[in-house]
């Protein structure tokens, strides 16, 4: 469905130091720096896959999504989406895709969302009957009955995002790019959005690529993740395998009936946190059974769960690894 080969997107960015002198100098001489937003990444995505696109701020995630959606022209490389070259922005291509950006809106600000839906029906040339069926489904699944008649400006952020998503799906895109779709939403709205996005993928078989800084979005939606850092691909595989690679240790989370002394916890494993009513231990995978047995026999445990390390920590460690690698490479490049 999606094929990316050696994609590069470089920008020339004007740089100048602060101050009047630098401002005057820039009138006659401008210094430009090449920024490598995306620097030679390749991957394939099969029809119906749900893929998380992860990376720290400025890693090149959104740039890649914008190239895939045909908004940006690549500096180098080959990109195809369902047989189309995105930068040509062919009508058939644009009718198959949609990019939802949590920080941008397509809803008409001073008109009710129903007007944007109708506009999209006309623009995407959706037959009336199909439009009605799709809209009824979206209204019911996203609980939009009360919202679609109110001016967009009067909707809350969460309400607006639900309507944004509905507007994006009126033409039933086969490829859905989601750029931080839950940004700024409360926890309950995030859960609603995730459930809806997953249901859409399962019902329609649409391919889905998601970027999000909320790891819960990724964990709930994406069996596969692609990690890019400083424009380069640093991981492509299953989320579970990523966690196993970066943080093979497990977390044993204990709920305690009464406070215990720290000295009782230390022999069981690395103490990650210790509160009067709870404790979290980090142990090697092969020591989990033994640790659980000892904890149950020596501590006033009321509840116990074994978990992977939080995804946020896994990602943070992965990005730190990348940073350290780059620093090392830079040191090696400096002549002695």
């Amino acid at each position: 469905m999606i094929s990316v080969r050696g994609l590069r997107k470089h920008y020339q960015v004007h740089k100048r130091p602060p101050g009047l002198k630098a401002a005057l100098r820039s009138l006659v001489h401008r210094d430009y720096t090449a920024v490598k937003a995306v620097d030679g990444i390749s991957f394939d995505i099969q029809p119906g896959e749900r893929v998380g696109f992860l990376g720290p701020n400025g890693a090149g995630k959104t740039t890649t999504l914008k190239v895939l959606a045909g908004l940006l022209h690549p500096s180098e490389g080959e990109v195809t989406v369902d047989g189309h070259v995105p930068r040509f922005r062919e009508e058939a291509f644009l009718k198959k895709i949609m990019l939802v950006m949590g920080q941008k809106q397509q809803l008409l600000w001073d008109l009710p969302p129903s007007e944007t839906f109708e506009l999209n029906r006309a623009i995407y040339d959706v037959p009336r009957l199909q439009y009605k069926q799709t809209l009824d489904e979206l209204v019911s699944l996203l609980e939009l009955e009360e919202l679609i008649g109110k001016p967009t400006r009067q909707l809350s952020l969460g309400e607006r995002m639900k309507c944004e998503l509905a507007a994006a799906l009126i033409h039933r895109p086969r490829v859905l790019f989601l750029d931080e779709p839950t940004i700024g939403l409360d926890v309950s709205m995030q859960v609603t959005m995730r459930a809806f996005i997953k249901a859409y993928n399962e019902q329609t078989g649409a391919t889905l690529i998601l970027t999000s800084h909320y790891m819960d979005d990724v964990a709930a939606l994406c069996p596969r993740v692609i990690v890019i850092d400083k424009g380069q691909l640093s991981y492509d595989g299953s989320l579970d395998a990523l966690v196993q690679r970066v943080r093979p240790e497990k977390r044993v989370v204990l709920r305690l009936g009464q406070p215990v002394d720290a000295a009782l916890l230390t022999p069981l494993g690395k103490v990650v946190s210790h509160e009067p009513g709870s404790a979290v231990l980090q142990v090697q995978q092969d020591a989990v059974n033994a640790t659980v047995g000892r904890a149950l026999s020596t501590l006033p445990v009321t509840d116990l769960t074994v978990e992977n390390a939080p995804l946020e920590e896994v990602m943070s460690e992965l990005f730190q690894e990348g940073k350290a690698r780059r620093a090392e490479a830079a040191r090696e490049e400096v002549p002695a």
């Binding site: 008409l108 008109l111 007007e115 506009l119």
Partner: peptide, 25 residues
Amino acid sequence: MSLRTSLKALPTLLRIGFSEAVAYR
């Protein structure tokens, strides 16, 4: 966008544009 699709969409585009113009009267 093909000419046929553009022409089909035009009345809706104009109607919604008019609604916006009324909103910004």
